[in-house]
Amino acid sequence: MRTIGAGAVSASLTGAAMVAESKPGPPEKILDATDTVKLKLNINGVNYAVLVEPRWTLLFVLREAIGLTGTKEGCGRGECGACTVLIDDIPRYACMTLAVEAEGRRITTIEGLMTGEELGPVQKAFLEEDAFQCGYCTPGQVMAVEGLLRKTPEPSMDEIRTGVSGNLCRCGAYHHIFRAARKAAIRKTR
């Protein structure tokens, strides 16, 4: 990393990772501002039909309409990462995604990493490595790591840092989070 003036800079590019092509979305739709329409969402492998307004975010629908409260709201403006979910296996912010835009996509939330009452490998690694204090950022951190490992099963430390760089932790558990990510990667590829 090179340093200049006010901060550290590096034009680092993550390794030759696979490029996930974005695909055109679901079919044509026309909704009035005051309409509530039935929307089908595929969340953690389950099809939900919910009544939504065009202005509702995916975060709002997950928490308030469906009751999946594992996904957290921090800033509500794309700056903290607490609301991270996977859409077609790719980490995104649910607070910056309109629910209507998620139609026809595969949505994965923190609840979807469980098998019954059993934690998934990334969740287990966070627990074992003590990768949180208050825990508020944790669901988002876990989803960012899960998304990273689905795309890059054996990430370098730099790739891990970049992978969770869109997730703030006010408690500063970063080093433990990096360790948990590495442990989860080893466990998942074994």
Partner: peptide
């Protein structure tokens, strides 16, 4: 909550 707006998702550039 965001202010209200209508939403359209056209399939052609002409409609867009």
């Amino acid at each position: 909550m965001l202010p209200q707006f209508s939403y359209v998702r056209p399939e052609t550039l002409k409609d867009t």
